[in-house]
Every structure is written in structure tokens, then in C-alpha cells.
Nucleic acid binder design. Sequence first.
RNA 1: GCCCGGGUGGUGGAAUUGGUAUACACGCAAGACUUAAAAUUUUGUGUCGCAAGACAUGCGGGUUCGACUCCCGCCCCGGGCACCA
Length: 945
Amino acid sequence: MKKYDHKRIERKWQDVWEKKELYKADDKKSDKEYILVEFPYPSGDGLHVGHARPYTAMDIVARKRRAEGKNVLFPIGWDAFGLPTENYAIKTGTHPKDVTKNNTDKFRAQIKSIGISFDWSREINTTDPTYYKWTQWIFLQLYKKGLAYKAKMSINWCLTCKIGLANEEVIDGKCERCGGEIDMREKEQWMLSITKYADRLHDDLEELDYTEAIKVGQRNWIGKSEGAEITFKIKGSDKEIKTFTTRPDTLFGATYMVLAPEHSLVKELKDSITNLDEVLRYIEVSAKRSEIERTDDTKGKTGVELKGVKAINPANNEEIPIYIADYVMAHYGTGAIMAVPAHDERDFAFAKKYNLEIRQVLVTCAEDVTNPPQERFDEVSRDMIIVHLRNKSTGKFALLDWHGSLEGITTAIMGGIEKRQTPEEAALTEIEEEAAIPNAKIVSRSRWITAAKYCASHKKQNRCAIVHAFMAEVDDLISQGKINEHEQSLHTLTWVDKKEILNRLTPYHQRQVWHILQNEEALIGTGFLMNSGKFDGMESEGAKEKIIKKVGGKMVTTYKLRDWVFSRQRYWGEPIPMIHCKVDGWVPVPEDQLPVELPEVEKYEPTDSGESPLANISDFVNVKCPKCGGRARRETDTMPNWAGSSWYFLRYADPTNAKEFANKKLLKEWMPVDWYNGGMEHTTLHLLYSRFWHKFLYDQKLVSSSEPYKKRTSHGLILAEGGGKMSKSKGNVVNPDEVIDNVGADTLRVYEMFMGPFEQAISWSTDNMVGSRRFLDRVWRVMDIVDDKRDVESIDALLHKTIKKVSEDVEAMKFNTAVSSLMIFINEIEKEGRVSRGAYRTFLQLLAPFAPHITEELWENIGEGESIHKAPWPSYDASKINENTYTVAVQVNGKLRGEFEGEGGLTKEQALEKALLIPNILKWTNSKKPKRLIYVPKKLINIVI
RNA sequence: GCCCGGGUGGUGGAAUUGGUAUACACGCAAGACUUAAAAUUUUGUGUCGCAAGACAUGCGGGUUCGACUCCCGCCCCGGGCACCA
């Protein structure tokens, strides 16, 4: 047979598929499946081998779905607005439109050469006016519903480029482009109220089939946090300070307050502030400091006291000072905090610096203490440890006081579980056993060890620890009235009220804990309250609610998520369709005048004033007000590149519609996206933004599902050979064109799927790729040993196993092991020297999604008529997978000593009989009677002597 | 600092309701074919040991008849977030 000529085959079939429109989605058919990959930004560098990884993966899924009879929509387009194109245009004087055209042409050809089964008839481009007309239209809907607004925002300002930068464009506090200094500057910016959707974006995640990492990423970004809003009165004033805290239980420890420098109260109080000059100076300085700078020096906190004003702590009515400091963020919570230095790291650092009172209001449990240095464990000789056991029903505690040598204690505690030697230990064991609750041992033991280590490691600082060992299981014991006997054996066990614990601690131990705070660190974490009036002795969790009630606070939920800054002072983006009229203020461009097209300009550089280059085009800027007809100015800011990608998946349903962004019926037919794969880096931006837009459109009844994507997965990066990112400057970029030219698209595809777990970052290796090429070479050669007369039987079990494995692995994105199982199948065929036509045919079908060209060619060669990609996906027969004969491993005392061939079902005894026939086993068992026998059917037998 | 991944041969990696660790591939070594080379192919390939066997999944403990897998503590690498009260 001819040689495997990948170039000829791949070109041939790509042409055929295109002519036959093999991958076209059908609007009229039912049983849809919408498979989506993130549309690329068509950069000038061309396609990256990294692109091929997710495209191939989802292509495999799409092809499998088609074979399973689904009506598959698998589209592609271009997210073509963006900075690199604009920068390239500035450098070369080419129009961004032309740059984009060149780049997309190149990308399209490259993607086609990989043989991805996109439906090219639905190709879209965000920079096409017929597309961005609808991006602008959606913006107008947001505006009309009050979700788009213009606000003064402090933004990063590059002094050299004279341009506003997004946070992502600031690297290490310097401008990404020129490396220049960054300043903060107030600018009017269009904003989108994504925060109004924060709770839904957070809560609805629950129902979605996103990988856990993605859910966690989104949740962290939204930053939902439940706490209390507590109001502090200002002495001698009717003004108040609202604070947000997650730790109302520490309210008695609030010894001062801090406002963000931007807080409005500073101005309102200016008459009472005696050091106003100093305060204003501080505000000015911190306003200039960029966010990066502010967050950079987390250690050296700065602030200024508002002299002349005092706040009242509502818990104890004490007067406390008020500070402004830029470690408090204006945009989070209420922009003001109650500072509890004893129990908050940041407040602690600040209090240390400015000599403020640090008042401890709770004692913590050892389980909250981490990192005890283990090497000190042996040095300890003397300390005190209190173990208390809590009785859930009575709310009482048992105190176990251990005095004397800690070495003895730790041995007792640890040994109490392990060795059970002393009477005390025996008693503990009995409690555990009588409690008879599974895992009781593990829970209590590990905590005791932690406690012991804590004591050990802190011995030198003369500390004490209160060990809170959770023993809910003791409850049973007490309720049965059995506790008295144990009281006797545990000679120090007595049941006391919670308050007793504190009494036991004072005064010596409190002083010790006090000492820790004064000199070292804040005690974060929860515990038992002290110095808190009538709340003393309560546990943190329970005290929270009661304290909030006492001071008239309320429970509130806050989010880290901020509104979306939607303005860019750039040329290459969608113009924001708004007009500013002196009379009417901001007026939306009437919908029938959309799109607001980008005008031709000669220069794309931003202007000196930091406005978009569009500001210099008077024809564009000067318009009539749509409302009053008077003179007005068009908005010259453009949208960020996230705009077009926030709804593109909807356009694929109806890509050429001129009347609406997509026909409702078609949307209902195709949406939601069944499976969306993309980069991890888009978890917090693109994915969140597009969910937000989609939820908004859902609220407007323009789409029919509240979520755009049912399932979201992500792929790992492909790194350069030897690790690190591929980059032009390092010269380690692998060009996919070359790879395809040398070994073929099918080899590239198989290799990228085989190289490692899909979601994991992995280094490229040209050496390893030859394995995939050899595999395809062998697939090709096996064609010669296809034997029509031979029946399938000899390889039947393996064939069905392979069908099962490949089918399941594709769904789980375990492409590497799917390929491996295909390799195993080919190895087996070669060993046999012959293969039936039927088995080979099925094998080709399994391989087809991975290597669509070579399989199509071989399919034709074995005389199949229609395309392999139209053939129904093979199913497996479970009964054929279970082989009748199998190997049973024989262990003696858990060690492998031999194996035997089993047949049919074997009982434990039969298996033992067979095992004892093996000479080597006899040697190990020494003819002794087995004490115990473990038999895992058809797998393993373990003889314990 | 916090969160999420990950740590298994010379290399990429398999194996998790606990049940024969190292599948598959690369590389390497020896052999076959060849005038020769490439390609192909056969065999071997965790470490130590002549062998029997012992030891090996980042480190230290634990649970178990049996642990890459579960529990406790720690170390290292990658990524993300970072004064979020």
C-alpha cells in the first residue's frame, strides 16, 4: 500500500468536507447540542500551538456528538477589538481594520489546516459594524434600565503616555507599555452596575456544571461576606459612623475607629477637627498614591488621627479616637471600620505603630494555632495544658487539668490513644469507646496532638494554651448517667459552666495571654469572650448575634466585586453610543441610528488630554442632540474589549440578523451553551461579565435561560520546551504551520491530546511528538493486514473495552488515556498479525474525532461509502468486556508472593485452594493455618498468618 | 499571608468507593534487516543484589490484612488573589 502522505490526505479531505458542508449546524433539526470554544483574539503572530489544544479537544467532543446523532452547533469567530492591533496600527500606520483583516485571514487558514470542524457559515467578528451595532444596542438597554452610569473614578494615569490605564495594564506599579510612573487621577468613566447582580452571580453558581476551580474563582472574585453593620455615634454630634464587620463578637475590643481617606464624613466634621491641615494633607497624599502603592506596603501602615472628635463604642459606651488611614478601602463595606487590634492583624500593626490600646476580648483555642515547630517538641519539660470536653446538651464543660511535666502529658494524651497505658489513658479510651461514634478517636486525637505540640512549641515564651477538644460524642455518655464512674477514674474531671473556664484562667493565665498580645501578634480566630461584660464566657459564634442585638446593629451581606469600568480612551473599540447635551445631559443615541460607526482617522494615538483619538474628529464629535436638536457632543470613549465577547455566543444562533441581535426562536432553540471550554484566565473577567449580560438580557425577557453556559471546563497552557511561557523574545515559540507541514495535523492533534492531562499546564516536546506520528503510521500500515475472512472474536473483549474507555474518557476530558487505549488496541492487532474488517472499522471510528483526516482516508480505503464522520458512534457490549479468565494476585501478609489464573466465579475457599497450589506460596505460609483471608473476586487474595 | 492545583522511573505521564504501583509514550541499551545510514523491527529497561529477596509514589507519623489513594503534621513547585474589616 501507498505511504501515509499526510499533506495530500489532509488537503484532500478538508476540501471535501468544505464542499459538502459536513459540519453545518441545522436550524431546522431538533436535538441540539451547542459546543463552544472561546473565540480567539486574532493577533499578528498567528495561531499558537496552544490554541490547538482546546480547539482539538472540543472538536473531538463535537465530532463525537454528531456521531451520536446530535444536531451540533460548533461555531467560531473573532474577538478582534483590542490594544495590540491598535498599537501595531500606530507603529506601522496601517488601519486597524486592515490589520484585523490580515490577521483573521491568517487565523482562519491556520485553523482550517488543523481540521477543526467549525461551522464556518456562522463566523462572526466583533469589529464588524453589523455586529457591534448590537453590542451598542445592549449597552443602551443597560443604560435605559439604569445599569450604566457615568461616574468620577480614580484611575491609573501614566505620566509619560498621558493615558488612563486599566488595572490589568499596570505591571508592578509601572505602565505596561512604557514603564513610566503611574499616578492616580480622577476621570469620568462609564460604569456598569454588575454589583447589582452580585448575589445572583454568586448563588446561581451552585446549580451549574462548572469545574470546582472555576466556581471557587468566581466566588472569591465576587467575595460574598456576611457580617454586621454597626453604627458608632460621634460624641457631641448628631453624626454617626457606619461600620461593617464580620466579627461583631469582638466589639468590646474596638479601641479606635478608622475611616478611609475618601470618606465623606471627614468633610462634614471639618469644623470639629482641630488638626484639619494635617488631615487634608494626608488625604491629598493618599489620593495620589496608586492602588498598587497602597496595597504594596502592607507593613508600614500610615494614618492621621482626627483630633477633636471621638466616637462612642456602643458596647461599653467608651470614647475612642477616630483615624483616617489608607489601609481602609473606601469602596468596601461602609468605608469605615471599628478597629479591634487584639484580634485583627492590620489593626494590630496600626495600633502598635500609633500606640493605641490593644484590648483582648477573647481567648482562642489551640485548634486555631498553626505551625508549631516540631523540633522543640522534645525540649519541653513544664507547662500547663487544660483540656476541656464540652457537653452539647447541658452546655457544660469538663476541665481536665494537667500539671507538671508536659512530656508526661503529651505521652498521656498521645499514648492514651495509642498505647493506653495509664489509668487516665484507659479512662479516655473508655469515653471514646462508650461514645461509640465513628471517627471520635480520630477527631479528638488529632486535636490533642495539636494542643500538645502547641504547648511544646511555646514553652519558652512561657505561654499557656487552652485546648478546646471537641467531644460532642461525650454527650451520649452523660445522658446515660454514666459519667460518675468516669469522674472517678479521671480524677480531675468535673463539669462546670462555661464561665468557670475563664475563672480558672484568671488571673495568672489571662496575664499570660495578655503578654502574648502586647508583644507579638493579634489573636485571630474565634474562642471564648472575655472583657465583654455580660457576654464573658460565651463562644464567639453565639455571642455575635447577641451583641448585634444589644447595639442595634443588623446583619448585612457585602461583596468585594466592584462595578465594571466600561470606558477606554482608545480608538479600536466600540464607540459608546451616547451624546452629551448641555440641556438634556446624557442622551442615548436613538436605536435606529445604530451602529455608531468608528470614523476614519489618520492617527490612532491618544490625545494629550488623555481622550480617545476620536475626540479630534469634529465630524464625529459634534452632533445634534437627539432630544432637543441643540448642539451636543458625542461620547468619544470606546468600550473595553470585554464588551463584544459578553454576548457573542448569542449571535452564533443567528449571525446575520439585521433586525435584532438574534431571533428569539433561534435563541431558544440553540441556547444555552451545553459545553463551554476556555482559559482559566477568563474565569473572573469574561466569564463573569458574560453571565452578567446574559442575566440582564434574561430579565428583559430577551433570552430564555438565566444562565448562558450549562457546563464550563478549562484547558491547561502549553508551555515552551523545558517550561516557561512561549514568547517571541525568548525564541521558543513552536509554529503550528511547521508542525503540520512536517508531521501533519492529525499527528499534532493526537500529540496534543496525548501529551498529558487536559486541564494541566504542560511543556511542549517535539521529541515526544514522534510517538504520535509513529502511532498513526502504524494505524496506516495495519490496513494491510485487514482480513475479511477472520471473525472478530479473538480481539472482541479488547475492542469493547476500548469503545467503553474512549467513550467515557472523552466525556471526562481524559483524552490522554483515551489515546493510550487506542494505542494498546493497535499494539494488540500487530501482535496478532491480522485484524477483522469489522474491528478495524470500529477502531477507525473511535480514532476519527482525534485524527479526522487519516481515518477518513482509511475509511474510504476499506470501502466505506459515506464519510466516517457521519457514521454512528459505536456502542459497546458490557457482557463481552468481562473476560472469563483472569489473573488473581496472591498476597501473604499483604505482600505479593505469586499469582494464578482463575476461571469463572471462585469462592474464597476455592481461591485459597488454588493459591496454596503455588509452591512459592507454600514456602511463605509455611503450611500454617491462615488467621484471616481476604478475597477480592477476580483480583486478589490475601492470606494473613 | 490567603485560596486553588501539583509532587510517582532518565523524561511526559497511568492507576483513587483502599486491592498486583510505574499502563501508554519518549529516551536509552543490545540484537535483526542494510555495503552503510535512516526508517522499520525484536528484546530489555524503577533502585540495590549473583540470587533469594529487600527497598521504592516529596518528608515525618498514623489507621489497615493491605495505602500513590484515607487521617494528622511538615517541605517544595506552579497558578490566582492580595490591607476586603
